[in-house]
Design a protein around this nucleic acid. Structure first.
Lengths: 259, 259
DNA sequence: CATAAACTGTTTATCTCATACACGTATAAG
DNA sequence: CTTATACGTGTATGAGATAAACAGTTTATG
């Protein structure tokens, strides 16, 4: 944890006094890696490949980054270098939280590979913390204590990451088979139908019967389909409802109870 | 998707007619890999190592598994081979859902490496589907439609995985530095204090001031500390509150509105 | 100003992996 | 009995991370 924070905040690497001018910098290395991942995916990101992209030898990268693992961690924070939503003027915290959830999703969407990065704990880099600040701010505006707000935020970002991952996976499958996202949903359904029996999986069977996995495409969505991420907001709104009820209840009771 | 389902359900591999008796089976290979991961972590799982564990050569594994990727997918479903909670008699769907959330967390906890497995979509293996069925059943008992129930379940399992991952990461850090989980929480706090300023991160600053990250250990928890996973249930309960309110509202309105 | 310390980028080498391919052998079907 | 098939092995390839030694470049310092 210590190490990771020093890494992400650049608190190591005191500025050098002697020796040749560095041709690269930690920033340029990370930027090249990010660009490469954007263009060809995370699998394409090897030290050799990043170095080639920069026109240097593989080992030169190790002057700027201690290991590939470190580089990946830096890429993770670099991706979040987007301004999070500004504080709302209207005090509508529900809208604020939803906006935040949309925001993170969109940030990830700009660099889809980033949802596959091996994370190691809560955010600790400058950009990650900026987003955390922004999300917490809105949640605390609801009247929640800071502790509970952290729990909620964790759930929200987990859901955003996971849901987007599923959507991306569907997109990849669609691209590979040359079909649409709607087709993939149907494929999944038919796949399930092959193994889901009424006795062993009654609820899933019902799900298939009701066609919940092959939804109506609302007009105006990217590829003609809602997609998991749009659907996610149903769950987000339930969570917001729950928070509202909780805060209300506590206010009424004079804030003694915690649950 | 097609391929993955056939893999996980063993719909490929028709029984062979000629040739020597196989010394291994897909099951034994996967079991060995799981055992190895349990003992030494996912990093230790290489084809070479699994083969050695079984007393065979590396390449022999490829008679049973097409690739390491496939093996990992099989391991992922194998881990879920635990009986999910049985249907509740008392009809207390809230308790049912919480029990389910505890259940998945505990299943993952038995094989911590499993939260680091690269997932590729919604569950499609027999064991994963059993858990999905169990969770959906409880959610649907609340009065939710099947579609929305899937969204909620996705959020729940994402949160469980992510939260446990954070807890495990803390545990690893604690083990490495020879300290306790409580120490790690304090370390994170002091680390943050070094970079969190009142102007740029007012809410996080408040969080630190209130010591929300260094909580009181409730008596009787593993290592003297609540840990992220216990905390998660606050968010779970809010979500349940929200579902309850939603179902109530819909019932009152004669179930026309959806949001 | 000279020189040594501190850096930079390169070369070379090592180790670990996943996986392709060809081989010898066992076994059951015809 | 013979032959197609499946099994386990040996060998080989190529990618990838990273360690170590080295040669060239600045700059602080005496």
């Amino acid at each position: 944890m210590e190490r990771e924070m020093e890494l992400l905040w650049g608190l190591d690497r005191s500025e050098p006094r002697r020796g040749p001018k560095p041709g690269l910098s930690r920033g340029s290395v990370v930027a090249a890696a990010v660009a490469l991942a954007d263009a060809e995916g995370l699998e394409a990101v090897s030290m050799q490949r990043v170095a080639k992209e920069l026109g240097y030898t593989t080992m030169s990268l190790y002057r700027y980054v201690d290991s590939k693992e470190d580089m990946l961690a830096l890429m993770g924070d670099a991706v979040m270098d987007v301004e999070p939503p500004a504080p709302r003027e209207d005090g509508d915290w529900r809208a604020g939280v939803e906006e935040w959830a949309h925001g993170v999703t969109n940030v990830y969407r700009l660099h889809p590979w980033s949802v596959y990065l091996p994370l190691s704990g809560p955010p600790s880099g400058p950009n990650g913390l900026r987003w955390m600040e922004s999300g917490l701010r809105e949640l605390v505006a609801s009247g929640l204590e800071t502790g509970p707000a952290v729990q909620i935020l964790t759930m929200l970002s987990a859901a955003a990451r996971e849901t987007l991952r599923i959507e991306l996976e569907m997109g990849r499958a669609a691209r590979e088979t040359g079909s649409t996202m709607a087709d993939i949903g149907r494929d999944y359904s038919t796949g399930l139908r092959r193994v889901v029996t009424e006795e062993r999986f009654p609820t899933i069977a019902r799900l298939l019967r009701e066609g919940a996995l092959e939804e109506e495409p609302p007009p105006g969505s990217a590829d003609g389909v809602a997609g998991p991420v749009d659907d996610m907001h149903f769950a987000v709104r339930r969570l917001l409802d729950g928070i509202e009820a909780y805060v209300e209840r506590r206010r009424a009771a004079g804030a003694p109870e915690r649950d």
